Amino acid sequence: MSGEREQQGRKPRADVQRNRTALLEVAQRHFLQHGVGTSLDAVAKEAGVGAGTLYRHFPTREALLAAVLQTRSEELVARREDIVRLGDASEALRQWLRAMEEYFSAFSGLPEPLMAAARAQEPGNPLTLPCDQLIATTDEYVRAAQQAGDTRASVKGYDLFLASVSVAWVRGTGTVDEESLDRLRALIEDGYREHDVQNNRT
């Protein structure tokens, strides 16, 4: 009897996890297809739960978005592992900025809430933590490039985080071609690179 009661006690937890997993899978698909402004009611319906269940798991759109981004972070971690093996601080920083740009471009409309969270620094915003983590990682790459003499001493990880979000935003508008994006990336790189080093390499 006690074993049966123990199993019954575990069932709600299994159901809760199953609902959460279903919501994240459906939400990711909807974000990919319709952008971050997709209907949350539609997400709940397709996941087979009520809107109340969705909001118990994810009280706000930002909370759901942050959870979905966490499930996609493995791709960024894999890119980071590849970048670490480069052994070139300047190239590592450049590739990390491109990796972040790709990450920020995952869903239509994603750059706006990320930029707002990074600027506001509100502890209650679920997107603040992932932004802070990305800024801290960018700071590591910036410091390494500065120590190598390739990046200006005044540059901060926060600056280049915002630059990557901005490129992702421009990219998401669908109004520019890849050549224009490359020029924009080059302008950003020219802004953070140490010019004496650039002149010595040309």
Rank of each mutant, 00 (worst) to 15 (best):
D132K: 04
V84R: 13
D82L: 05
E46T: 14
E75M: 10
P59D: 04
L23A: 07
R94I: 08
L114F: 08
E102M: 09
A63S: 13
I135R: 04
V43R: 01
L24R: 05
E62W: 03
E62Q: 14
Q146A: 12
V49T: 10
L93R: 06
R72V: 01
C131H: 05
A145C: 13
V84L: 11
R94V: 11
A66S: 12
R119M: 12
A42Q: 15
P123I: 07
Y141V: 05
E81P: 00
T71A: 02
A144Q: 11
R80C: 04
S73A: 10
I135G: 02
T137Y: 12
E140C: 07
T53S: 11
W96Q: 03
T38G: 09
E46W: 01
Q70S: 05
L24Y: 03
E25H: 12
Q95T: 08
V16H: 15
Q28R: 13
S39K: 04
R56H: 10
T137L: 13
H57I: 06
H34Y: 10
R85D: 13
A116T: 14
R79Q: 05
V43M: 01
E46G: 04
E75T: 12
D88T: 08
A145R: 12
R72I: 01
D82C: 00
M100C: 09
L127V: 02
H34M: 03
P126W: 00
F58A: 05
A117T: 09
E122N: 13
V84Y: 10
Q17V: 06
L93T: 04
Q28D: 14
A99K: 10
L114S: 05
Q17A: 11
D15P: 02
R143V: 15
Q121D: 09
L97M: 15
G52H: 10
A136L: 09
D15W: 14
L69T: 00
R119W: 10
A51D: 09
S90R: 11
T60M: 04
A117K: 11
L86W: 07
